[in-house]
Amino acid sequence: MKPIHANLLLAAAVMLALAGCASKKPAAGDGAAIEERGASSGSATDGKSSGAGKDDVVSRSLGDDGDGSGDVAGAPSARQIFFDLDQYTVKPEYQGVVQATADFLKSKPKVRVIIQGNTDERGSREYNLSLGQKRAEAVRKALGVLGIGEDRIESVSFGEEKPMSECHDESCWAKNRRADIVYQAR
């Protein structure tokens, strides 16, 4: 049978209409009793508390194609900090990136940065979101040590949702365990 789009609201509506009957006991025993079950058109379309009585409406986000990077003239080009497996500290080799970021922010008081933390794809999406946040926070704290105030930095996480590289082995995973620095002109 071909699925029919409009069936959703009908199906949902009748479920709503019938839902109130769910707790009633069906006619029992040897009798040939038939319970009357009305599904009034009113209850089939008002949809209120179940929210399923009307057609579900599609919402749409058009998103924002720019990633915000490169918008600030003169900003340092090194904007990525990579992390080891299960590690959430900024390695010494990236101290130069942090220093350059801090220096630029000090020279441009109206510029702020978003630090976007990322993880590889293994494990729970929500738990990875919290791990990406740890990476972003590590960079935020490193900038804080260099005198950049919290009001100029927002650390957020993309978890495993925005991989730089999409495959399923360590060569990709290493690229995806990172924090990106995104400059924003205020």
Partner: peptide, 25 residues
């Protein structure tokens, strides 16, 4: 013996959902 006896009065568009309801019962 009868285990279940029910009647549903529904609009044509509710037939599929009614069938699911009967299957659930």
């Amino acid at each position: 013996r009868q285990l279940l006896g029910q009647s549903f009065v529904v609009e044509p568009r509710q037939l599929r959902a009614t069938a699911h309801r009967i299957a659930d019962l």
